[in-house]
Design a protein around this nucleic acid. Sequence first.
DNA 1: ACCCGGGCTGACAACGTTGTCCAGGCTCTA
DNA 2: TAGAGCCTGGACAACGTTGTCAGCCCGGGT
Lengths: 354, 354
Amino acid sequence: MTGTGDDPGGTARGGPQPRYGGRPTMKDVAARAGVGLKTVSRVVNGEPGVTQDTERRVRDAIAALGFRRNDSARILRKGRTASVGLVLEDLADPFYAPLNRAVEEVARAHGALLINGSSAEDADRERELALAFCARRVDGLIVIPAGDDHRYLEPEMAAGIATVFADRPAGRISADAVLSDSFGGAREGVAHLIAHGHRRIGFLGDRPRIHTAAERLRGYRAAMAGAGLPVDERWVSLGPTGPERVRAEAERLLTGPEPVTALFTGNNRVTVTAVRVIAGLPRPVALVGFDDLELADLLSPGITVIAQDPARLGRTAAELLFRRLEGAGDAPRRVELPTRLIPRGSGELPPVTG
Amino acid sequence: MTGTGDDPGGTARGGPQPRYGGRPTMKDVAARAGVGLKTVSRVVNGEPGVTQDTERRVRDAIAALGFRRNDSARILRKGRTASVGLVLEDLADPFYAPLNRAVEEVARAHGALLINGSSAEDADRERELALAFCARRVDGLIVIPAGDDHRYLEPEMAAGIATVFADRPAGRISADAVLSDSFGGAREGVAHLIAHGHRRIGFLGDRPRIHTAAERLRGYRAAMAGAGLPVDERWVSLGPTGPERVRAEAERLLTGPEPVTALFTGNNRVTVTAVRVIAGLPRPVALVGFDDLELADLLSPGITVIAQDPARLGRTAAELLFRRLEGAGDAPRRVELPTRLIPRGSGELPPVTG
DNA sequence: ACCCGGGCTGACAACGTTGTCCAGGCTCTA
DNA sequence: TAGAGCCTGGACAACGTTGTCAGCCCGGGT
């Protein structure tokens, strides 16, 4: 009898089930409560000017129908979406995940939802995501750049979508950016190795078109130059950070007639691979890595790192974003957050050859 | 002189700039191109029935005004949002981050965006997030439950929002769920310790109202019972997984007159803390942990774990979700994914007392 | 008896898009 | 040359909500 086939009501009890396919609307609630449309709107939004009795009737109707306000319509009408978009490289990366979470917390504190996506270090995909978020009319956008040309965002920013870049600066446009001090951090890390007696230090980093990678390389060179040490270009390896390439490069640097006695690794993925390679060698190799790692203190030796604070990076970027949304209209700002050297053993090993 | 000629190009120069506050709309584009509104819509959506010449005029106008379709309006009109919501415990948790990413990838393959949020293991916050996503009219919802009563989602599900639960089953409603075999995994892990000679095995887990925690405890008891071993209730510690409590409990189990010789830890956070405690002890303590850890193989001894595959969990849940969205209407399904024991050393240590 | 003010309420337009439907002009055929 | 049929383009309503504004009712002041 209650066939699912031609019975429109389907789910609930009897009563005036509205509109076959969809959900009840304020109009339906109004009809059931015997009030006007706008009165329902007032109740739903907690606006004043509704008597207790009317409000009760409306609330009963809402409960009976299972009404929930359609935010799409609300957004269309009001123009603000109370949502921010975040484009990052990889949601699953242990460096970006805390950043993601920090942005979420700030958004939440401002009553906004978070839409996010991974660019997979692909400029086209970054663009595609950012523009999709803009089409959804996010109020603001935080971008961790994969590409190096962000002019495509100019119309959106001009149209009022606040945009903050994080971890890396924007390319070819002027915009807010929140960065870590990659140059200073790398310089400090390499200087630390030099201070422990190393002269032949390898650098394993990401492709130099990535801003942070270029900065870290610059820091490496600055530290070497500052100590009056030459850099053999064969000690420098830049490229994709997949385990295979990094493994091969690490092995190349650490074997052969004149191996390096220490490695500086440019980010967490590279560090992990390098640690695995070193673990397979008979002699100890000093290592300092950029980015902290969970459990880094439990290895023997512990891994000495230049730690960034990804959560702080995200929080700072999000706070700047919301300040912009609240009207701060001064010139684009560039915030640089400090890094911190955490000595744990691997960076304090003396040079060993052979 | 390029083709754009003297026309106001990108952002904002002269020209018929419409509507002071906002962005250009299809109406503005239509006016500028000298065509009807619907023709613009057709061009934007790649619908047939527009001559090349007209299309060019429209595209020029779009470029000149910096028009981008407002997806809020589109969503309102079409009823589908091409977005899915994901409620999980913590975006930054190394277990959930890959799950998040996997859901994103599947959503992307289906042309949908992802909205997500962290419940922080709080039932109210889970509810708040899920309902906020519903108000945005996500097409589907993936929930990693924090609470144990999901009846609040019934109206939404009845109204057509497909919902899949992941990692833990729904409470008090019937719904799709994708789980790991917590019971079997824990039983196997504890049996592994027993097989290596342990008789006094401690269990450090999360609050038992969390389904996975209860299942893992059940697995522990089953393994002990299966070997005919008694369980001293002082060996079992359930509660919040903050480092302080876990540290105190681990120390309690491992010291005193009759300490346990091995630990089974109920999730990645607990494992990490337990490893730190053990590292501070003079004698070796065998350990098997639920959930894999990055670098677990590099510790000495390596950490033996029961590995789940969080990415697969997310992928499976998302695929099931989209199957539902494409119309699969059969009864709620419960998928259980296997776990895998990865022996690395810590689980193979013999019992040592003292 | 009349008017005024304030508190409630509802009718209506608007947000920007898409689906429906019809008009006009063209080509093709008889 | 007229009629049929196709192609292109536009007018209009609808999606569900909120802002504006006007109307109603009631009590109190004149």
